[in-house]
Amino acid sequence: MAIDMNAAIAAIGAGVAIAGGAIGTGVAQSGIGSAGLGLIAEKKENLGIVLLFFVIPETLLIFGFVIAILVMLQAGLI
């Protein structure tokens, strides 16, 4: 079976976009998570606010996801 190089590179690009977003989110969440747990240990009423702050960096992953979808659309993969 012949491999379409353009499609293959596009698929790798989409994967890199998702991976970059995921790594960025993970790095940001590690800092927020540890600080947030410290705050909850002091005052557990802050759970809701900490949870909210914790999910904010997930936007990076979403951007990665959007880029991946756009790349795959452009390459005709979906």
Partner: peptide
């Protein structure tokens, strides 16, 4: 950037 963030619904 904020409207793009709503793509998470689909994600």
């Amino acid at each position: 950037t904020h409207p793009l963030s709503y793509a998470r619904l689909m994600g």
